[in-house]
Amino acid sequence: MWITNPNTVADTVKTVTETAKKQDTSWIMHHILDARELDFAPFGVIHLPEIHLFGFDISITKHVVFMWLAFVILVSTLVFMTKSYKKSLVPKGVTNLMEVLIVFVRDEIVKPTIGKGYERFLPYLLTVFFFILTCNFLGLIPYGSTATSNIAVTATLATISFIFIQVGGMMKNGVFGYFKGLIPHGIPFWLLPIMLVVELLGLFTKPFALAIRLFANMTAGHIVILSLIGLIFILHTYVVVPVSVAFALFIFCLEILVALLQAYIFTMLSGLFIGMAVHQEH
């Protein structure tokens, strides 16, 4: 009935969105979204500088600051680690912890997924793993913010992965050989146009999935925690406090797992795609 009248539909949507507007969700979105300032409530707010270059708004935002924080943490920790290796080859303390992760990425992710010639992609995949891991964990500390819950960040990381996949494949097989290798052997020639489209589309869906997966996983946990806490204020009762806190704590523990898991999955899938591009015969 209503399909026949687009104006009615538009009106309905308008009413719905207007009522939705009245429901204030900014208290959740405040924690999820990027911002122009660092909010250290109740101690104050640090406003970040706005920068405009060639008509683009390249202001420093909260997520950018936390990426830089991840940068500083990673560089200092890993450089400290190299120093400790110079002293003795036997690892100790932080070095031991980092070594476990590095050896895990090398032996459990990169080696099996890429196979021969994995050394070439090892620095990139290690960097991606540790960068995502650190960003994920920074979102779990008080006043922290998850840079990986910003679609722009995850899409950029996925694009860099995409470039590594394509360039890796082309360097190994040659540009022409790489595109030829995309199409499976032994299919009827009349299927070629369809396969070409499918395979080309497949190239782009992989990084798209990478970006969306990381973004959604890192956003969802925070929204769930905030919703559980918000339940207390929506229901106007203290009775739900234990339930809300218990569930929020559970979700938080889950988020620790997810933080590790998503870093692992992003690295593993990137490695897998690189392996598929490099060794096309399989």
Binding site: D34, I58, T61, H63, M67, A152, V153
Partner: peptide, 8 residues
């Protein structure tokens, strides 16, 4: 946000 892309 294009700025975030650049900084990333």
């Amino acid at each position: 946000n294009p700025g975030v892309i650049l900084w990333t």
